[in-house]
Design a protein around this nucleic acid. Structure first.
Length: 270
DNA sequence: CAACCTGTTCGCCA
DNA sequence: ATGGCGAACAGGTT
């Protein structure tokens, strides 16, 4: 499920635990979600307070520190990626992890739970006051002013031989964009997903930038547990083999492009 | 039973 | 060295 708006929503679920110390945790260090990091180091979180958190694209970080005399010193960075099937939720303090609950942070009044059945997601940990390299990657967030025409042109020029759909899925350029958002953006921008990036006109690049920012902004505003993407968006039609273009009712086309199932409207997109 | 999947990474190739 | 592509990863769902 998780692309940028879902990640933003899941990440906020743990907000209720801010300012509270971690009193215990539950994890199985050999689970695949801990690949590349030392899961035993996570024990350091016990006694530390959840200070704040942030989401960047599909990545999230939770910062922990000591809380003495009301002053918090940053100590630890917990990174979480939800992969294909990851979720975060809050449970009661007596929560017992089931098969796919790979990490549980216990506070006095609740449990903060990371679940991921397929384990394409990932947990990372860093101990120290400064941001680790896996967090500060230098990739601009789409909602920021650094994600602008100048930066976009550099990125598109570097991938001219790839279909534009595949380029939209590259996290080093389009941080947080996934399969459905890429299709949504190209549909609104009237660009065929299989077009080679180098074939885009100057105007089309401008439209692509505008629609990318629009889809990110609107989807963050609307998508949550009980809220769906706005009516009239392609996402509501794209999975069905009989899906139709929300604008004209034209039957959608489907193909694998950039390694993923892609849907588009042959009438809207050129 | 087989095919499919909203993501990333790796190895191979040009 | 750089960029593009297909396979692999695991388990649930259709």
């Amino acid at each position: 499920m998780p692309e940028l708006p879902e990640v933003a929503w899941y990440h906020a679920q743990w907000d209720v635990g801010r300012g509270q110390p971690i009193v215990d945790l539950a994890l199985h260090a050999r689970k695949r979600v801990f690949r590349g990091s030392n899961a035993r180091e996570l024990r350091r979180l016990i006694g530390q307070t959840l200070v704040d958190s942030e989401a960047r694209g599909k990545r999230m970080v939770f910062r922990f520190g000591d809380n003495k005399r009301g002053r918090e010193n940053l100590r630890s960075w917990l990174g979480i990626h939800l992969g294909m099937t990851g979720k975060l939720h809050v449970a009661a303090a007596n929560f017992r992890p089931a098969k796919h609950d790979h990490l549980v942070l216990y506070q006095r009044d609740r449990a903060l739970v990371f679940t991921d059945s397929r384990q394409f997601g990932r947990v990372r940990f860093h101990h120290g006051p400064d941001a680790p390299a896996w967090w500060d990657t230098g990739v601009p967030e789409i909602g920021s002013t650094k994600f602008n025409r100048c930066w976009l042109d550099l990125f598109l020029d570097r991938h001219g031989k790839a279909p534009i759909k595949a380029v939209l899925l590259m996290q080093h350029g389009f941080s947080g964009i996934g399969n459905w958002m890429a299709d949504e953006i190209l549909w609104r921008a009237h660009i065929l997903p299989a077009r080679l990036t180098s074939s885009l006109t100057c105007d089309e690049r401008g439209t692509l930038l505008k629609e990318t920012k629009f889809i990110v902004r609107r989807s963050i505003q609307t998508i949550g547990q009980n809220a769906d993407a706005p009516r009239g968006w392609l996402i509501h039609e794209r999975w069905s083999p009989t899906g139709r273009c929300p604008k004209h009712g034209t039957a959608l086309q489907h193909a694998t492009i950039g390694g993923r199932t892609t849907a588009w409207c042959a009438r809207c997109q050129r």
